[in-house]
Amino acid sequence: MALRLDHAWMRSLPELRWQPVVKRVTVRLGDQLVAVTDHPVLVFEPKRVVASYAVPLADLRVALEPGPTGPPPDYRPVGFGEGGPPLLDPSVPFAVHSADGEPVLVRAGGRTGAGFRLSDPVLHDHVVLDFDAFEWWEEDEPLLGHARDPYHRIDVRRSSRRVRISHEGVVLAESAEPRMLFEGTFPLPRYYLPRGDVVADLLPSTLDTTCAYKGRATHYDVRAGDAVLPAAAWTYEDPLDDARDVIGLVSFYQERLDLEVDGEPQERVRTPWSE
């Protein structure tokens, strides 16, 4: 029987998964070199959808110390409605672990970063490092956000579909010239609209986010009638190469709003950004 790939991927989520990487990876903590390795691996702990880099112990330039135990896993549903699988979404911090192992600390130059030594016999001679605590390079290119998954990709396509975004009957934007951004196995595209097709007021927001594939996003609070919706829209003013085709366009968190495409209401998908 034919195998549907996204279903196979979902069935593998409860497992500890890893993938060797052929890029040279450099890790720093402040001005201190932590590791340089030609043999990094990407590690997905059970139910995690975002990978972390693990480096061989032999390539570490610093010593490890025992670290504190983190909180228990906080699984959250992702998908359509409330029936999505419970996962460790990208908002769950590194300190939460779903695999057997021991927390460790890296100290260098007066700074501290967290790590995790897995008990698995295949990976026991590696240490997984908290991406947010360190500075990272693949070859000579800096990384943003988190480790990049080689199976994750972004496609941007011009479209003539008519897209309407609204909130409680108040239209925020409407366009027949969206650019649709398809990302990995995310169940819906993101719609990036020309600023001229946004009728709601966009107000500066304090939210700051970084995507490993698209770059740093500028967020906006959105005025909808008498209401102000916090951080409901964003744009990429200086995107990474994967998102250069949506530079300056505006997208909305459709999981919080009402979306119509060609006049058809779209079901909301539950994501880490639903609330």
Rank of each mutant, 00 (worst) to 15 (best):
G84A: 10
G84T: 12
G84M: 07
G84N: 08
G84S: 12
G84H: 07
G84L: 05
P85D: 13
P85T: 15
P85Y: 11
P85N: 10
P85I: 15
P85R: 15
P85C: 12
P85F: 09
P86F: 12
P86W: 11
P86C: 12
L87F: 01
L87K: 05
L87C: 06
L87Y: 08
L87I: 13
L88T: 10
L88R: 09
L88Y: 05
L88N: 08
D89A: 08
D89M: 02
D89H: 09
D89T: 10
D89C: 06
P90T: 06
P90A: 02
P90F: 00
P90V: 04
P90W: 00
S91R: 13
S91K: 12
S91L: 15
S91G: 15
S91F: 09
S91H: 13
V92Q: 15
V92D: 04
V92A: 13
P93T: 06
P93L: 12
P93V: 05
P93E: 06
P93H: 11
F94D: 02
F94V: 01
F94C: 05
A95F: 02
A95D: 14
A95W: 04
A95L: 08
A95K: 12
A95G: 07
V96G: 05
V96A: 00
H97N: 13
H97W: 05
H97M: 13
H97L: 11
H97R: 14
S98M: 06
S98H: 11
S98T: 13
S98V: 03
S98F: 09
S98L: 10
S98A: 14
A99M: 03
A99S: 10
A99V: 10
A99R: 07
D100F: 11
D100H: 12
D100K: 14
D100C: 12
D100R: 15
D100M: 14
G101Y: 03
G101I: 05
G101M: 02
G101C: 07
G101N: 04
E102H: 15
E102N: 14
E102Y: 09
E102G: 12
E102C: 15
E102V: 14
E102I: 15
P103I: 10
P103N: 06
P103G: 09
P103Y: 02
V104W: 04
V104A: 12
V104T: 14
V104L: 07
V104N: 12
L105E: 13
L105Q: 11
V106M: 00
V106W: 01
V106G: 00
V106A: 01
V106S: 01
R107D: 06
R107F: 06
R107P: 08
R107A: 07
R107C: 09
A108Y: 02
A108N: 03
A108C: 08
G109T: 08
G109E: 00
G109D: 01
G110R: 05
G110L: 06
G110S: 02
G110C: 03
G110Y: 00
R111T: 10
R111L: 15
R111W: 11
R111V: 10
R111C: 03
R111I: 05
T112D: 05
T112M: 09
T112R: 12
T112Q: 14
T112S: 11
G113S: 02
G113R: 03
G113K: 08
G113Y: 00
A114Q: 15
A114C: 13
A114D: 12
A114W: 00
A114I: 01
A114K: 12
A114R: 14
G115C: 07
G115H: 02
G115V: 09
G115F: 04
G115W: 02
G115M: 09
G115R: 00
G115E: 04
